[in-house]
Design a protein around this nucleic acid. Structure first.
Lengths: 252, 252
DNA sequence: CGGTGTGTTGAACAGCTTCAATTCATGTGG
DNA sequence: CCACATGAATTGAAGCTGTTCAACACACCG
């Protein structure tokens, strides 16, 4: 477990006047297509680079009026809903290239907090301007539809309420795959968040997370050393997780 | 509990060449605004009325290629995800005016089954055509964004995993409010679905649903007679449900 | 060095599930 | 028309999974 890459504290690629960030959701959309050059440059002009946000600081808060959506450029961000009885539910952990804030469109207010887990940099997209632009950039509109649709699915996945082991297996594998898609090792990685966050994401007590990790460790399917994780038997984990897994990225 | 309205077996309003159905999601959008008349008539032309679907028959199935979204015109439709170990999870019950199929945009396949609970009639919107039209009808685009965003939220609500009583209270109250928004009584109504469906929606065993209903009944907060429900103390139910409730429709 | 927050482990408890039996309504075939 | 089968709903009893409460190890930091 020595070859673990430590995440760079600053974004590797900020983009410039001619290009989007390498992680940008809209980068791939615009690169290959014959799009309206003027509109494209407007889209580019619309992007606002913000950060750094230190671990624990808010990108937006529950109840704030909705003005913009955000794409994670570097670091990790969690979206946190206030649950009943003082509990909090973490809807997701968002890696570079992923977009947050889309759930706020409906009520025009953010329904959750967005909090940096790591030191995080983001891109800000003023939504009204973006929505206007999409009428001239159908590919961007399609991408927005797709992003919104994706979030419906991801919210639904955990709702099936499987056993603790399955949830944790699905969580680890999902994280592994998303990291792999970003050029990191799929086998060995470091959990960016504390146990309590994992617990709140999977609807478990932190103690249960500990115990399940230990169980998986004792079975020889993973190795756990603090936040260092090594997946020894991803096949077994996948079997455990069952239909719960986010499909291994077909598109984008 | 005698004044209960029985739901009409056929849609009350099919719309015509000049008007959308009274329940239509896009009706309100187009009615009041100064929109492109030609584009509007195209949108109108795009709508395809389908049905009836008898209880238990599929509107679409998991894995089918995504071609269109659907709006419920009359009746009730459930969206069912295949859960782990043969269990099934019901993401939602959809009343007239609500849209289903949006989660399929992302992977271009339906991630769930849509099954009629009641006899149901729907409107079908070819999605590609619709997406093209929205570039000329910004209000419709905005409405689509809003619908998608709404579904993210609704999927997240139950994820907070509260106690069984809270879930059931939230479910009953949510249903009551949605029915009220459609002109039915908020106090007295009939559950369109069987207990097992409620159980699969709330991640409970059918037996637990029975027991909780009985408990609420014995507390004097509701009256239950088979599928007939009367809410005697909606205030207490709301207190129980806590932050879990869908906000009482502000917009639309 | 004590303080704080994270993580682990143990033991008792609670809530929900599971299994099983019963009632009731509906529909089918003899 | 009745006998029987089927499925929904309810209720009871037992069992299990995860929670809660509590104690402790460990690292980091003033």
């Amino acid at each position: 477990m020595a070859e673990l890459r430590s995440k760079p504290p600053a974004p590797a690629d900020d983009g410039d006047a001619a290009n989007f960030c390498s992680t940008c959701v809209f980068g791939t959309v615009c690169a290959a297509h014959d799009v309206d050059k003027i509109a494209l440059s407007e889209l580019h002009f619309l992007v606002e680079h913000i950060g750094p946000f230190r671990a624990g600081s808010h990108i937006f808060r529950t109840g704030e009026p909705f003005k913009a959506i955000y794409a994670v450029r570097s670091g990790v961000v969690k979206t946190v809903y206030a649950g009943s009885a003082g509990r909090e539910y973490i809807a997701g952990f968002h890696l570079p290239g992923e977009v947050i804030g889309l759930a706020a469109i409906h009520e025009q207010r953010f329904p959750c907090d967005a909090i940096a887990v790591d030191t995080a940099y983001l891109c800000r997209f003023e939504f009204r301007t973006l929505a206007t632009l999409t009428t001239r950039l159908p590919q961007v509109q399609a991408e927005l539809f797709r992003l919104l649709s994706k979030d419906i699915g991801s919210a639904t996945v955990l709702a099936g309420e499987p056993a603790a082991d399955e949830r944790l297996a699905a969580f680890l594998l999902g994280l592994s795959r998303r990291l792999a898609a970003r050029g990191f090792s799929a086998r060995v990685f470091r959990l960016p968040m504390v146990r309590r966050d994992i617990a709140n994401h999977l609807n478990l007590a932190p103690e249960t997370v500990s115990r399940v990790l230990r169980r998986l460790h004792d079975q020889g399917w993973i190795r756990v050393l603090d936040r260092q994780i090594e997946l020894l038997r991803p096949d077994e984990l996948a079997r455990l997780a069952g239909a719960l897994l986010p499909v291994p990225q077909v598109r984008r």
